[in-house]
Structures are given as C-alpha cells and as structure tokens.
C-alpha cells in the first residue's frame, strides 16, 4: 500500500504533497471548530501509534506481501483528525521502517487518508440510518481499504501500468486485509460503544 521512492514521476509527487497539505489544513481547521482539539490529542496519539505499528503485521499473499492499514478504524474513531494522524504515522514509518518513502509521504497520505475520511462519513450516515454499530463499523473498515486500493491503482497508472491489470492485482491481494480490517473495525466499534461510547462519532441522546 505504501509507494516507495523512485516509482512515481515528480509531477505526481508534487500533486500528492499539495493535496495533502490542503487537506491537512482543512481537517485541522475543521476539527478545531468541531471540538476542543486538546481533548483529542491523547486519542490522536494512541490511534497514530496503532496505525504506525499496524503496518508491521504482514500477511504473505503470493506473489506479494500485504499488511494491515487500519485507515477505516482511524476514520471512524478520529473523524476528520484521521488525516493528520495518518500523516504523522506515515512519516514515522518512512523514517523508522523505511516503509514507503519520504518523497511519497504526500501521495501515500492521500491514498490512505481520503478513504479514512470517507469511512468516517459512511459510519455517520449509516449510524443515522439506524444500521447496527458493529455492521456499519465493519463496512466502514473494509470499504476504506478497498477505496485505498483504487487510489493506489490510480497513482500507479501514472507510471504506465495498465489500470485494470494493476487494480485487479492489488485488489485480489488485499482481499484478506479487507476482511481482517472489517472484523477488527467492527469489533473495536462494538467494544467502544459498550465501554466508552463518547469516543465514537455518535450522539448519545438518540
């Protein structure tokens, strides 16, 4: 899921950084309006830490190797703050694990962060529609990975790969991740709803 240095052309890299910078500003501004950011800091740090180590859980899927991403869970728990959290997590992964690359932090944040924001939206809408929390959590978690796969395939077509070929290859190898993340996100949401529902973007008045 993480694109390495030296794969993409410089124009794609610049576009990635510009979009990520803009989205970072929007999401930070947005979260400041929504709630008190300082109350979010511990939650943000814990989630960024989870995201940071999740990529170490590798699952060999021939002919490649895939790993957990957890961007759906980030989106559901952190809301708009998931974008800055993913940015921090990816930077640390690039520095400490040589996972991904420095030049691709922008585009990688985009590929994983935008699906996280979408997962947040899906979760909120699903909750308002009255879908059970476990189910909508699982859907958000699985769908976030799937949307990331589409984004990744779209970034890679700029290198001259055939979209259908590359998208199929990445999608097939990520099927186990979609399933695992759906289960993980669903169970975390169910657990949080029971133990600490104020961590989820749901109103308790209902």
């Amino acid at each position: 899921m993480h694109i390495s240095d030296g794969v993409l052309s410089s124009s794609v890299i610049i576009v990635g950084f510009v979009i990520t910078l803009v989205l970072l500003m929007i999401t930070l501004r947005c979260s400041m309006k929504q709630s008190d950011v300082k109350e979010q800091i511990p939650k943000l740090s814990v989630m960024a830490g989870a995201f940071f180590v999740a990529s170490l859980i590798h699952i060999p899927v021939p002919p490649t190797s895939v790993h957990l991403i957890l961007n759906g869970l980030m989106g559901v728990v952190l809301g708009v703050l998931s974008y800055p959290a993913i940015f921090i997590g990816l930077t640390l992964q690039a520095v400490l694990f040589q996972h991904g690359g420095f030049t691709t932090i922008g585009i990688n944040t985009m590929n994983m962060g935008i699906p996280a924001l979408l997962a947040y939206g899906i979760f909120k809408i699903g909750y308002q529609k009255g879908i059970p929390l476990v189910l909508i959590g699982a859907i958000s978690g699985g769908l976030a990975v799937f949307i990331s796969v589409i984004f990744l395939a779209m970034s890679l077509i700029t290198t001259g790969e055939e979209f259908i070929d590359i998208a199929r290859l990445i999608a097939i190898t990520h099927v186990p991740i979609v399933i695992i993340e759906a289960i993980v996100t669903g169970s975390v949401v169910a657990f949080l709803a029971k133990v600490k529902p104020e961590l989820l973007p749901i109103d308790m008045e209902r």
Binding site: V37, P42, S45, G49, F52, V53, L96
Partner: peptide, 25 residues
C-alpha cells in the same frame, strides 16, 4: 536499529508530539 527499538522510537516521537501539542494548548 533492531525492530523493537524502532517501534519504541516511534512511540517516543508520538509522545513528544503529543507533549508539544498539549503544551501549546
């Protein structure tokens, strides 16, 4: 660095960042 140390370092950075953010807040 061994992997465990790199994970530890990552958490160190995160705690540091959280500290700075809390200080500013």
């Amino acid at each position: 660095l061994p992997l465990a140390m790199r994970i530890f370092a990552g958490f160190g950075y995160l705690i540091g960042l959280a500290g700075i953010a809390m200080y500013l807040a």
